[in-house]
Design a protein around this nucleic acid. Structure first.
Lengths: 218, 218
DNA sequence: TTTATTTTTTAGCCAAGGCTAAAAAATAAT
DNA sequence: ATTATTTTTTAGCCTTGGCTAAAAAATAAA
């Protein structure tokens, strides 16, 4: 069993080594966790002894397989709870992070198993990020522009390229927000326009619109 | 904001002063929390400075109004989460305590407001204990025998007087367990037998049966 | 290739919460 | 009313997870 502090370090290092690719520097961890480098050194040395990560002085830290497993479980919990908060308690997607930060540390594998089932084993959280399955497997996703999808593919809205007021209002009107699933029903070869499905709504979007929306795809 | 340790002390003292009536001794707290008396003394002195309880050396501790408020909020959270675990995640009522012990420390008033609404503002938890409302008011309940109820009253099953195998099997068959709501539809003056409703089922119970079941009533 | 600068680590300190052992107060027994 | 026993407190120490300031290593600049 890992302490709250340990879990938070593991989670942070996991996220950092996704982006920064490879070993993570002491300073990077410190900055990301809003703490001091000296504190990070201490903790990283402790976690290294626990075989959660490998650590070479002055070089940085890198999670072991065990460490990644722990991190993945935390991420799974975090994202499932976010789905719960949004889908069941009707929170808005941008209000749930803080609460999920707390809920992700609740210890009970049975709880998560049942929560997952209760939520219908969702594949994405309300921000459009993929939820690892119970074995820790992430679906490998790619961030693309909506315009890059083909007919009968789908994507989860994760952001916009340029955010003009008009565009955001358009998305709002069409009930597209972060985490929304978008099915591509058809695509016009000639002008790149598409027919998409959002919820139960089906409508037409121009290439200009589809070029401005980022989606996460499998 | 109170720490995890502080919240646990406050909660424990709250429960102890319900039963033991009045001031709570250092040893009682220590035993109940499975810790040492010396640790209790330290914490109780700290909480006294924070005006959460009044404490007289060698005499014991007693929660202030503020302390009771904090305790009540924790109890409310604990019991609402238990309802969630049983009603929504289909845990059995005797499996949920540990998990609720963790969930009760999640900080977010909005979360509890929404959880309560989501659950239909339940008045009792799965053990038949009353859930304080958002202002901290407990419905004042009384523990009675089912046989003491009158027509059109209801009670929440909280236990049995004598537990023979046959009796427990009977309850099982009738889908009566801890936390089950029982409506008294009719009562026969002559022999004390009753017609009760459990879920959507309505059936007859003899006085002997009704005399053996404890229920919580408003 | 020295010298400066940045990054990281070490050393020493602090607060929270716990523990043990000894002292002090309260309570019970003679 | 003493003495014995139990309860509670104090004193001192431990671990976790922070912090600051100084030292050491790595990196960049001259």
């Amino acid at each position: 069993m890992y302490s709250l502090a340990e879990e938070n370090y593991i989670k942070t290092i996991f996220h950092l080594q996704q982006t920064k690719k490879g070993v993570v520097s002491t300073n990077a961890i410190a900055e990301s966790m809003d703490t001091k480098a000296s504190s990070v050194t201490d903790m990283v040395q402790k976690l290294s002894e626990k075989k959660v990560l490998s650590y070479v002085k002055y070089k940085g830290a890198q999670l072991t397989e065990e460490g990644k497993k722990i991190a993945t479980r935390i991420v799974r919990k975090h994202r499932l709870w976010e789905v719960f908060l949004v889908d069941k308690l009707e929170f808005h997607w941008d209000e749930v992070h803080e609460i999920a930060e707390q809920l992700e540390h609740i210890h009970s594998t049975e709880l998560i198993k049942r929560l997952d089932k209760f939520l219908g084993s969702p594949a994405f959280d309300p921000h459009g990020d993929p939820i690892p399955d119970e074995h820790g497997n992430f679906v490998k996703t790619e961030k693309k522009l909506l315009s890059q999808l083909h007919k009968s593919q789908f994507g989860i809205c994760v952001g916009v390229k340029e955010s003009s007021t008009e565009y955001l209002q358009y998305l709002d009107k069409k009930k597209i927000s972060i985490g929304t699933k978008i099915n591509v029903l058809g695509k016009e070869f000639f002008d790149g326009s598409m027919v998409i499905e959002v919820g139960t709504n089906q409508f037409f979007v121009s290439k200009k619109i589809a070029d401005n929306l980022y989606v996460q795809t499998l």
